[in-house]
């Protein structure tokens, strides 16, 4: 019943060592001290690792396609939540308006 019986299963140990290699890169990256390198090595590699774990360990690569769409949908809704919240929390000034509450918060925070 498991599809792995028909597919030759991937070499899990090999994937594990690739993941470890990526893990080392994500640790070493921030030591260089350049901000964008840190961001790429930290989050880019986290993403790559997550995709690899998902694809090979969770067998999403051979799972029915709609499972992937379900998970993408859940992720998309979270991006939507982020996008909806972002202008509210990150932006406190516009052309003709100022979000007074955030300005007050900032001044309170300073002391």
């Amino acid at each position: 019943m498991n599809k792995e019986q028909t597919h030759s299963h991937p070499n899990y140990v090999k994937i594990y060592f690739i993941l470890l290699g990526l893990f080392v890169v994500s640790i070493v990256g921030p030591l260089i001290g350049i901000k964008w390198v840190t961001l790429i090595t930290a989050f880019g590699i986290a993403l790559v690792k997550a995709v690899m774990v998902g694809a090979y360990f969770m067998h999403l690569n051979i799972e029915k396609r709609f499972i992937r769409y379900i998970l993408y949908t859940a992720l998309l809704f979270m991006i939507l939540l982020f996008a909806g919240l972002a202008p509210d929390i990150l932006k406190s000034e516009g052309n003709n308006w100022v979000n007074v509450s955030t300005v007050n918060t900032a001044t309170i925070d300073q002391h």
Partner: peptide, 11 residues
Amino acid sequence: LFLFPLFYIAK
């Protein structure tokens, strides 16, 4: 894998 960079690496 995501909590690690979010809380530990990104500084």
